[in-house]
Design a protein around this nucleic acid. Structure first.
Length: 449
RNA sequence: GACCCUAUCGUCCAGCGGUUAGGACAACGGACUUUCAUUCCGUGAACCCGGGUUCGAUUCCCGGUAGGGUCGCCA
């Protein structure tokens, strides 16, 4: 009697997509993929004060960037809409009437609507946490007071999360609720609401929280907390998604890098860890580097192009071969795409910055200008059609041998002269790519800088 | 405070009623290298404590402790 799996991600538009939320979305997505079920995106915008179109866009952007698509919800529609809680008032009204008919709610002295919490033990079979029993008939303080009844509607008519969340999960036919463990303690109350509404509760899977490096709950301020930060820093989306999978889940064969498709095929809710995991920015960064190194050049180019264009570099004015040559030369070096313009601008413009320290330490070193002149004169003798890596390397070595110095004595000033930096791709590759004419001009310009 | 969840290197993830407790990140040392990065090799680093069960517990049970969560007219 298994009905098709329907899971949902139900964020509140706060203008911020938290990695914890992103991982919740990811786990829901993985489970939908694993079971061939559907993922529903529902926007929980009952708090009018902070509900803006920009705030909702942040959610779409973050999910899409991570490669997480949804089967029903904003932008794609579906049979269970609308998918914004702010547009579902009539639905909530109808369900409220059900509770009223059952005499399960009352108005308090402030005009709030409250749900009469049944004071009885509740047993939950959580797919991650196992059997959890909560006895709500026990007092919560030394005075012997029971927990107050749950407010479900404010005097101004707006709805409270617990109620609309349950109603929507019923209406949308949600079969599995996969959410953060911070909701585990709320779940008994939700179950009582389901029962009062005559609905069968879905299955629950409460996934562990993501902690910061100090062991506390990740907050907005913690490093790595915002998905937007990864986008801005130029992380590889599949690397971040991969890293998030590793927090609380494992392929159990010691692999770290694993494609999302394969995770989906292996993903089982009862294999999710129960313990909270601290977020490790270093490991996420390392994994990102692994992805860059191992990805095909086509993917690298696709990720690089918008960054270079955004930086105002005229990459469109260069042949594809040239662009690919440049990108290939830095592919093993770049760790974050935000660093890309600094690593490659000199390939696309003559108006590139010079690193001050490199200038003073290398370009202005005793003898450096003379060597640059010598080098220019020597490289000038290479025939234009012989301008390639091996010929350039041979030229450097010949010159160094003649001068009786180490090749490095020419290499370092040449690098700074040609690129403005002391770090970069293999120098001979760099010069070969740049072309003889530009190289000679830059060596000579730098000699008199 | 009450209730709930959790407990293996600093961190993440394995593991097991008998193991030299494994891998990864980070750290440290070395090799390679024209820079940077990569790569390679190596080193240090863990079963929270106390009871029980058992021939034997890191592993199972109970208690403690610690951490996290919930107890909102936030979601």
């Amino acid at each position: 009697m298994t009905s098709p799996v329907r899971v949902r991600f139900a964020p509140s538009p706060t203008g911020f997509l938290h990695v914890g939320g992103a991982r919740t979305a990811l786990f829901n997505w993985l489970y939908a993929k694993h079971t061939g079920g559907k993922l529903i995106l529902r926007i929980e915008d009952t708090d009018k004060a902070r509900n803006t179109v920009e705030a909702v866009q942040v959610i779409y952007d973050g999910l899409k960037w991570l490669g997480l698509d949804w089967d029903e919800g904003p932008g794609v529609g579906g049979d269970h809409g609308p998918y914004f809680q702010s547009e579902r008032d009539a639905v909530y009204q109808r369900y409220l009437e059900k509770l009223q008919a059952a005499d399960a709610v009352y108005l308090d002295d402030k005009g709030s609507t409250r749900f009469k919490l049944p004071r009885k033990p509740i047993v939950m079979e959580d797919l991650v946490c196992g059997r959890v029993e909560v006895d709500r008939s026990k007092p919560i303080n030394p005075l012997g007071d029971l927990e107050p009844d749950m407010t479900i509607r404010r005097p101004d008519g707006s709805w409270i999360f617990h109620f609309v969340n349950v109603v929507d999960d019923i209406e949308m036919g949600i079969t599995h609720v996969i959410r953060g463990e911070d909701h585990l303690s709320n779940t008994p109350k939700h179950i009582e609401l389901y029962q009062a509404l005559g609905a069968t509760p879905p299955l629950f899977a409460h996934i562990p929280l993501i902690l910061n490096r100090s062991g506390g709950k990740m907050s907005k301020r913690d490093q790595g907390a915002s998905v937007q930060q990864y986008i801005d820093d130029g992380y590889v989306p599949e690397a971040v998604a991969n890293y998030l999978c590793l927090l609380g889940w494992s392929p159990k064969d010691n692999r770290e890098k694993i494609a999302l498709d394969e995770v989906a095929s292996l993903f089982e809710l009862d294999k999710i860890n129960r313990r909270n995991a601290a977020f490790d920015p270093d490991k996420c960064f390392w994994l990102n580097g692994q992805y860059i190194q191992q990805m095909p050049l086509e993917r690298f180019r696709a990720l690089c192009q918008p960054v270079l264009e955004h930086a105002g570099l005229p990459i469109g004015g260069f042949p594809n071969d040239y662009l690919d040559g440049v990108l290939a030369s830095v592919k093993e070096k770049i760790k974050l795409f935000k660093d890309l313009p600094a690593w490659t601008s000199y390939f696309f413009t003559d108006d590139f910055p010079f690193d001050e320290e490199a200038v003073t330490k290398t370009l202005r070193a005793p003898g450096a200008p003379e060597r640059l002149q010598q080098l220019a004169a020597h490289l000038e003798t290479l025939p234009a059609e012989g301008w390639n890596h091996d010929a350039i390397e041979a030229a450097f070595k010949d010159l160094a041998a003649q001068a009786g110095v180490k090749t490095a004595a020419f290499i370092h000033p040449a690098r700074v002269a040609a690129s403005g930096r002391s770090v970069g791709p293999s120098l001979y590759h760099l010069l070969a790519l740049l072309g003889q004419e530009k190289v000679l001009a830059r060596l000579r310009a730098a000699a008199s800088k």
